[in-house]
Write a protein that binds this DNA or RNA. Sequence first.
DNA 1: ATGATATTGTTTCCTTGTCAACAATAAAAA
DNA 2: TTTTTATTGTTGACAAGGAAACAATATCAT
Lengths: 161, 161
Amino acid sequence: MNKEEQIIIGFRDIYNKLVWLNKFKMEDSLKGYTSSEVHCIEYISSNVDSNVTKLAESFYMTRGAISKLTKKMVEKGIIESYQKPDNKKEIYFRLTEQGNAINKIHEDLHDEFQARDKAVFEDITEAQFDSMLSFMEKYRRHLDTEIKKQGVNITNRNDLE
Amino acid sequence: MNKEEQIIIGFRDIYNKLVWLNKFKMEDSLKGYTSSEVHCIEYISSNVDSNVTKLAESFYMTRGAISKLTKKMVEKGIIESYQKPDNKKEIYFRLTEQGNAINKIHEDLHDEFQARDKAVFEDITEAQFDSMLSFMEKYRRHLDTEIKKQGVNITNRNDLE
DNA sequence: ATGATATTGTTTCCTTGTCAACAATAAAAA
DNA sequence: TTTTTATTGTTGACAAGGAAACAATATCAT
């Protein structure tokens, strides 16, 4: 197995394990709320004027899925929607009291996760850290470019149909 | 944002982008087969005596989901099941001709993906590469330990109920 | 200003996966 | 051996998310 594969498999495996483990803990601490809802809350709390489209892009999900999710969350009283006077189309979300409370719990949990995994990061040197980050940044930019290309191809194809 | 967060977010973002992009390409090249099916084929091709349980563990999915997936794949003629003379319970899978053909296409696609992302890896030094891999290995082992702990807790909790 | 195009959010239908209960078999304990 | 426990795979009810069609609004080109 070569470099590329090893690194990609490493990414995938670590990410999967992390998601599995944290999801488990989270749904235990935040009973009654799904991990999707909690992610949504997290995003809304740190991005002003969040809307369906931005949430969907950030989570790699469809607008339809987010639309349903946020609708449920409004009904549950976790978030509320608002609009701007000069735009009758876009609908934004902000957290309610309840949403903020959940967010607080989630933040604490987050710290707990960091504490749990602290040892893994302890003896990374600054140099190692920087080299990893710059690699990831490069990778990410590359993928963005490829995704953009793909987007163009999709559009082109639709144009021909 | 601290080291841990940056790295984790990097993992997540790269992984998501990669999945999104490759899935897209794959379902374009392998029309009629879902990416789950292709992953299954990949696993079965490189693990002798694959069964529902092993597939489920490897994909972080439930046995139920894999059971349905493999059932469909058998019906489609992509894989076939077999048993061993001394075990009437376990059911194993292997690829059919058709499954092998799909696997071949997938492997080629895989090479294509590697070629696409080659540039990103080009100027990583051996040292950088080794340090990343050893970090990931450490992280992975840590998560395995934590997952195992979690498992114990689950069991304990059930015992009390 | 007006007509064409793009964006935003919603809904319906469908697929995929989870959960929980289950039967069949295997493994372990008595 | 017999009994108990664990493992394996399956199913049905359900929930989450994707795809596509849609209406409403905004943006752009002319």
